[in-house]
Computed example of a mutant assay.
Amino acid sequence: MKLINESAWQYLSVKLPMLGAFFMLILIPLLQWLVDYKLIPDQYYAVVTGLVIPALAWLGRKIAQPNLHNVNSFVTVTAGHSNVDPGAINGKFKEAELVTKFRNAVAHYLKEEGIAIKTDGVGSDNHNLNTAIKLIKGSDVAVEFHMNAASNKAAYGIETIALPKDKKLAQDLSKVVAKAFNSKLRGDAGWIDQSQSARGKLGFISNGGLIVELGFISNDAELKTFNEKYWLAARDIADVLIRHVK
């Protein structure tokens, strides 16, 4: 048996019956006293004690909770660059191909938990930036994956570029990747404000997304760690996104 990864306390169908059970502890002695002194018929006791909790459970189920039952909610996960734009390269390794693998791994873990997703391709497909940007609209959160590169081959570390409103999420995403790769956090505890990014204004971020830089492809040691542990980092990224949307 596999339990659903969520808090049952968010549902009124759970809260109301529990509240009813609490009040029944007070109500039952009172009803019994009224019955004993013939102030109410015996059947009232049976009706009240037997129907209160089921009635509250039914009511909790019928009351709409749009924030919990948004059938159109989804998470967007995309890979940087595209099939025709390899991005940064280190030997036989191309940034676009590496982040596509990472995107697929994150998508796998999200789907395992029943999270609706949209991606900029399936398998080895990696569509262009315009396609990725179009997928952001309507999503609960949109994340794109990239890798940094530098002329200094010793440069390393993890960062997430995002708008100030997404600072905490950006830091959480960077933190789990840095832990999985035994790397360091760059910027403000892993967050880089788009306005302070060397890349300037980025379309994916301006439209509401976050860009996670999964280390430096130009650093041979960090590249090796990525190839060995990207599934672990992808699982942890998925966990952060699941907690964020739930």
Rank of each mutant, 00 (worst) to 15 (best):
W58G: 06
A162N: 13
A189G: 02
V143A: 02
V212E: 10
N148T: 05
A88M: 14
I26T: 09
L232T: 14
S197F: 06
W191Q: 02
L169T: 05
P66R: 11
S206N: 15
L39S: 13
R243E: 13
L110G: 03
L31C: 11
S139N: 04
L3F: 14
L241A: 02
N128C: 03
Q194E: 15
A79T: 07
P41G: 07
G121I: 07
D239V: 08
S151N: 12
L59I: 13
L232G: 06
I192G: 00
W33P: 04
T100C: 09
V52Y: 10
T78F: 01
Q43F: 13
S206P: 12
L163R: 11
D36I: 06
G20H: 01
V245T: 15
P29S: 06
V14L: 11
L3M: 11
K229E: 15
K246I: 09
T78G: 00
S218V: 02
A21C: 09
D236L: 02
Y109L: 00
T119I: 11
N219G: 01
Q65T: 06
A96E: 05
A116C: 08
M24A: 06
I211V: 14
K165M: 14
W58N: 04
L232V: 15
V48Q: 01
R199M: 05
I205G: 05
A180R: 00
K62E: 14
S13A: 15
F74M: 04
K92T: 12
I133C: 00
A88H: 13
H69D: 14
L110N: 03
I28A: 10
L210F: 09
E113G: 13
K224I: 00
D239C: 04
L135W: 00
L59S: 07
H127Q: 14
G87S: 14
R199N: 15
K224S: 15
T49I: 13
G114Y: 04
L30F: 09
H81R: 13
L98I: 09
L68G: 03
Q10L: 11
L19I: 10
L210N: 04
A142N: 06
G80T: 03
L163A: 12
I53E: 05
A96K: 00
T160S: 15
G50W: 08
K184D: 15
G138Y: 01
L34V: 01
R199Y: 12
